[in-house]
Simulated scan of single mutants.
Amino acid sequence: MDGRTIGLDPWSQTVGWLTMQSASTNARARESQRADESVARRQRCISTELAHANVAVSVIDRPTASTATVAWCDPSSCRYGDQVWRASVARQAGTCALSGRSIGRGDAIYRPRACRPSPLNAGAMILAAVVEGVPRG
Score class of each variant (00 low, 15 high):
78 C>M: 03
45 C>T: 12
92 Q>K: 14
120 L>E: 15
83 Q>C: 15
93 A>R: 05
121 N>F: 07
61 D>I: 00
27 A>E: 05
125 M>D: 05
82 D>M: 10
132 E>F: 08
94 G>E: 06
27 A>R: 10
53 A>W: 00
129 A>D: 13
101 R>A: 14
131 V>M: 02
14 T>P: 00
120 L>A: 15
7 G>C: 03
119 P>G: 11
134 V>L: 06
57 V>N: 01
79 R>Y: 03
45 C>W: 13
122 A>M: 04
50 L>V: 08
43 Q>A: 12
18 L>V: 12
50 L>K: 10
24 S>C: 10
55 V>D: 07
106 G>T: 14
134 V>R: 01
126 I>G: 02
4 R>L: 13
65 A>K: 03
59 V>Q: 04
66 S>A: 10
37 E>C: 07
43 Q>T: 15
15 V>H: 02
61 D>Q: 02
43 Q>D: 13
5 T>R: 00
63 P>S: 11
125 M>Y: 06
14 T>I: 02
10 P>A: 15
10 P>E: 15
106 G>W: 04
84 V>A: 05
110 Y>V: 05
39 V>T: 11
132 E>Q: 11
73 C>W: 08
110 Y>A: 01
120 L>T: 09
122 A>C: 08
2 D>C: 02
68 A>D: 05
131 V>A: 06
119 P>N: 13
99 S>E: 11
24 S>H: 08
106 G>K: 08
130 V>Y: 01
10 P>L: 10
121 N>L: 07
9 D>H: 00
95 T>G: 07
67 T>Q: 15
133 G>T: 09
71 A>H: 10
26 N>V: 14
113 R>N: 14
19 T>F: 09
66 S>E: 09
107 D>S: 03
130 V>E: 13
124 A>H: 00
77 S>C: 04
77 S>Y: 03
21 Q>S: 12
96 C>T: 09
116 R>G: 15
82 D>Q: 13
30 R>C: 08
